[in-house]
């Protein structure tokens, strides 16, 4: 049900408005979950949450905190006492659906939403050569040369007026350059229809935190024809326990497919595995085609936290670059949750 863009009955205040001077970090968060085109957007006081799902088995969530934006304003459309009492600030109020790929295309309309800085440089060079003699007067203000360093990116202002209205984006590279206005059709979202994979945080069977590069190298090496991926966890062996000749590996990834299997073991080394919690030997299997959906986010992420509860529900959190100062007070992450394969089948 595409929404009407009739502006006559516009509500007084949009549900949310957000602006930022560089869309790259937002785009990276969205690209991470772009394996499915239809995303549910939930706005709340603390920011936006984009969710997608795959085959009723897997969910992907990007948490876009309000501090990623230069400005973020949220107005609860029908703020009632009862609603404010439900849970914390995470209580989602206005879910709506959008085409995620369309949003990403729009954010990248000037080709400067990629996280690699190389493409930006190429983009800028030819412009200086060609259009200068006639464009100088109205394009380059006296201060522009100071801003043309690596701060150049696409600036954005986003707003959503409420159910039935499009998500409006205004994008510009610089104050004097071209501006793009995008109206992305929104769809009603059915909260009942949403898949929620619950992870029992009280009953974690396996938890691993490691640098993303260690996991990325392992997963991207695997043949795409793999069918099944199994995570093994064993409690760290005591160093004085020398009775066993071959200690079982701390953390192992086993990939199985038509053409054989691959095993990857991670050593008990703080260089590799930052945190490892496992009380009893555990093994859980997942469909490789689902796990491989996380690769896009894994590729740009910094750290990975992987946890599996005793029923096998897998949660993978990827810490994403945020462009903020070094201190890690604010973190951006993308989370994937996946239901295990039933090993008895």
């Amino acid at each position: 049900m595409p929404s009407a863009t009739n502006a006559s009955a516009e509500p007084a205040k949009p549900v949310f408005t957000a602006s930022c001077h560089d869309v790259r970090y937002l785009t990276a968060l969205l690209r991470g979950i772009s394996f499915s085109n239809r995303a549910t957007v939930m706005a709340h006081e603390g920011g936006l949450r984009f969710s997608v799902e795959e085959a009723r088995t897997m969910t992907g969530d990007s948490y876009v905190h309000s501090w990623i934006f230069d400005e973020y304003e949220y107005n609860d459309p029908d703020f009632t006492q009862s609603q404010s009492q439900t849970q914390s600030s995470q209580a989602t109020v206005v879910p709506f659906e959008i085409r995620l790929n369309t949003l990403i295309e729009c954010l990248n309309i000037f080709g400067t939403a990629g996280l690699s800085s190389g493409s930006k440089q190429q983009h800028k060079k030819p412009r200086n050569n060609i259009g200068d003699d006639d464009d100088d007067s109205d394009r380059d203000g006296p201060l522009d040369k100071f801003f043309q360093g690596n701060t150049k990116g696409t600036g954005m202002r986003m707003s959503y007026a409420g159910a039935g209205y499009p998500l409006t984006l205004i994008l510009a590279e610089s104050s004097s350059g071209p501006t793009a206005t995008c109206e992305i059709t929104t769809f009603d979202s059915d909260p009942e229809d949403r898949l929620e994979v619950e992870i029992d945080n009280e009953d974690i069977a396996l938890k691993v935190i490691l640098k993303s590069s260690w996991l990325r190298d392992a997963l991207s090496e695997l043949d795409p024809s793999c069918e099944k991926l199994t995570f093994f966890g064993n409690p760290p062996s005591q160093s004085n326990n020398t009775s066993r000749s071959t200690p079982s590996p701390l953390f192992r990834i086993l990939a199985e497919g038509m053409f054989g299997s691959t095993e990857m073991d991670y050593p008990n080394d703080r260089e590799v595995v930052e945190t490892f919690i496992c009380q009893e030997p555990a093994r859980f299997s997942y469909r490789f085609s689902h796990i491989s959906k996380t690769l896009k986010a894994l590729q740009v992420s910094i750290k990975t936290s992987l946890r599996i509860d005793s029923k096998g529900a897998l949660g993978m959190q990827f810490l994403m670059p945020s462009g903020q100062a070094k201190e890690d007070d604010g973190t951006l992450f993308v989370e994937f949750r996946c239901i295990p394969l039933d090993d008895r089948l």
Binding site: P2, R99, I109, S176, P178, A180, C182, E183, I184, T185
Partner: peptide, 16 residues
Amino acid sequence: TGDENEVKVKVEFGVK
């Protein structure tokens, strides 16, 4: 306007 009416995009350039 998107082929499936999913989006409308307008890019504006200041020109001579």
